[in-house]
Amino acid sequence: MELDERNYLYFLFILPVVVVLFLINLYWKRKKQREFGDLELLQRLSPERSVFKPVLKLIVMLLALAALIMGLVNPKIGTKVETVKREGIDIVFAMDVSKSMLCEDVAPSRLEKSKQIVSQIINQLGSDRIGIVAYAGSAFPVLPITTDYSVAKMFMQNMGPGLVSSQGTSLDEAIKLSGTYFDDKSKTSKLLILISDGEDHSEGAEAAAEEAKKMGIKIITIGLGTERGGTIPLKRNGIVESYQRDNSGEVVITKLNEAGLTTIAKITGGGYVNGNNTKAVLEYVKNTLDKIQKTEFEATEMADFQSQFQWFLGIAFVLLYMDIFFLERKTRWVKKLNLFNENK
């Protein structure tokens, strides 16, 4: 998992800790000096010792630490905006978020497995545009067509059964909503990747697939689950409290329905692949994409950001280098100015 560079900002809490340690050390020194003898006498015995220099060294060290931390954060500044032309296809991921997808007959669960598969498919895409639809008993638009893959992954990770109020699995609603993501006037190839356990609780999935075919949409269906099936755990804070039950009080057993998913895919000239084998899914999708004709998208404006960490690291090293030459005795020319009333 990649570490967000902004997390390094928490290291700034080190600075007040350093100040507190400095004050504690200063208090301890003063206490020991009082135990040793008269403070005024000690000052006379060490007339070259500066009161301000230790504070100056502390300030320089704090600034150096702050600069190092900002270097780790790596601030970025937009330097230019350029026009980029992309070539690819439009892809919509329709992801089943019904409660049956919480079944753990596929590790870690059908839903988490589907997220892993979609994330890895996105990783192997080039310049294609993608969108995301979530569905259960009804369909819900999650992310419109975009080329920002990182945003797509972020939205996808927050998807779950709570996103759609109506439970069940309505494949026809998912196909219909996904169809609205594509531009009818565009000549760009259209691909719908539908991920589900295939337990369709609605009617009309095949009719919706026929309409998708007329729109030039090819559908790939990915099935998750096993024929044996499993229960649907209901968890709170990661702990199983109970299992989903039907109206008669019996524990629900949810199973993979490959037949329905296969039929939908074949209607549009697409294909079905079992999602339990991630490698097989990725290879199948890649082979399919290689065969689909790519078209050039409309010019897109993209901001090019440049890292600025080197400036902060440079400042930090200069300050640390200066700190070496800051001795705790008084500087002669500063001593003559007597800025801090050190001469009595």
Rank of each mutant, 00 (worst) to 15 (best):
T262D: 12
T263I: 05
V240N: 06
E250N: 14
A299C: 01
K294S: 06
M302F: 05
V285G: 02
V273E: 02
D246N: 14
A265Y: 00
Y284L: 07
Q308I: 06
V273C: 04
E250S: 12
I267F: 07
Q306A: 06
K279Y: 13
V273K: 01
E250V: 10
N257W: 00
N247C: 05
V273M: 06
T295Q: 05
I253Y: 03
K255S: 07
N274I: 05
I292A: 04
Y243A: 04
K291P: 04
G270K: 02
D246Q: 10
E241G: 08
D290E: 14
V285F: 00
E296D: 08
Y272P: 01
I239F: 14
R245W: 12
E298D: 08
V285H: 01
T254P: 02
N257R: 04
K279C: 09
G238P: 09
E250G: 13
N287A: 07
G249C: 05
A259Q: 14
S307A: 10
A280I: 12
E301L: 03
F297S: 00
D246F: 09
T288R: 00
L289R: 03
N274V: 02
K255C: 03
G238Q: 12
T288D: 04
Q306T: 11
N274G: 15
Q293R: 08
D290V: 08
S248L: 14
G275Y: 02
